[in-house]
Design a binder for these strands. Sequence first.
RNA 1: GUCCCCUUCGUCUAGAGGCCUAGGACACUACCCUUUCAAGGUAGCGACACGGGUUCGAAUCCCGUAGGGGACGCCA
Length: 469
Amino acid sequence: MTVITRFAPSPTGMLHLGGARTALFCYLFSKHMGGQFLLRVEDTDRERSTPEATQAILNGMRWLGLAWDGDVVYQSRNQARHAAVVQQLLDAGKAYRCYASPEELEEMRASAMAAGLSPRYDGRWRDPAPNTPIPDRPPAIRLRAPQTGSTVVNDLIQGRIEVDNSQLDDMVLLRSDGTPTYMLSVVVDDHDMNITHVIRGADHLTNSFRQVQLYQAMGWPIPEFGHIPLIHGNDGQKLSKRHGAMGLDAYRAMGILPMAMRNYLLRLGWGHGDDEIISDAQAIEWFDLSGVGKAPARYDLDKLLYLNSHYMKQLPPDALMQALQPFLAEWKQERFGQPLLPDDLARVQALLPALLQRAQTLVELTEGSDFLLNPHRPTPDEAAAAKLAEANSAGVLSALANRFDQRQPTAAADFESTVKELANDLGKKMPEVAMPLRAALTGRLQSPAVGETCAALGLQRVLERLRAA
RNA sequence: GUCCCCUUCGUCUAGAGGCCUAGGACACUACCCUUUCAAGGUAGCGACACGGGUUCGAAUCCCGUAGGGGACGCCA
């Protein structure tokens, strides 16, 4: 039998790390098994679902590189089918109409709590006494769930879990307004889509017992379940806006590469021996649910950044430049009000290997390229300004300008040897000459080696900046 | 409150009774390299939550305790 998995987000917000990892695991598992990976948007909550969120999820999936098979399924379009299933259940006596009011339900929960039980519906409309007056309001439809015995889920990750049926109440299938609930919709859609493996966050674990009861009521085969532990924030608390629950788009904006994100997410909760850097092909070859741990994992930005810098260095220069270009263009436009030119790209690419050692994200790479994009001499930061203000700086810089003018260096090595030669002639140590030079060219005290820096800038700009300093 | 789950270095993990004086990676520290900052190299710091069993032998099995998490909606 072909394995079919699905990722089923509800479009009520951005696609965040937890969802992205679930999607990745579903994807890898199906590919590993030679199966299919489907995408279903659970948009049955018309209050909270938005087209923007749907779009954000789709974009996030594409950016992460998780291609789904077939068309996206929109759950809201299956409502008639969901209602029809409930009718079947009603006809078979496996579901019933419940007229309890919200206030009554609230009371039931409160009294159950007070009695030391878990809050739940008491089943009063399951078998109403004869002649019970029917309230003048439309009923919700509930599943007539077994009240004795137990329900078992053999979870591929969590293991065998058994819950006493007395803990589970009769869940609502159809609301009083006739719309299907999530519990009903997932089961019907998963069945109709022939999902063989339901892989989702562990927050759904307890839901699966009720869902199993529904499968049983319909006489449908029960899929395999795999509940992935949740991701926690830095502080061990549930992932929230504060730490990491940023949408995937935020990571893209900070210059994270999709492959780095994939590798990071893969290693969060899953391991394969001592392997850390894992290619997509290896991920598909190695991934299995038995390698997924049971404990929740914490989100750690440092490791993501490390992986990102690794993949930036690994990327062929052309591909890196292509990924970097939009960031450079935005930087130049916003800072200097000018469009990015082919010349800019050439300068950045020339210095790319050196720049790469000093950046963990595309944004940092762009920051490091600032002096190459700046049409003028960069305004020195505090430390650079102090260096330039030192007594011997002005003299060194004009001597440097004269010497460069005289030697006409072009290659990094030529610039470097010229600087060394001058330092020697002046009886100064290398840093005494190199640091003012760096400050004049880049406005900072940190930059790639001065030879490379000069060469990337070109003699003309170097002279301009030295004379303007 | 009730039910369910989890617990190896700060973090992600390896470990499926002897291979473990517990391995790798990130982070951190030191040194090397060096014109700055990095990168790189080398070394170091650092964990089996606790208490009982079972066993010749336990990080690995069992039972408690503590701590953490999740679920208990006519949300998904």
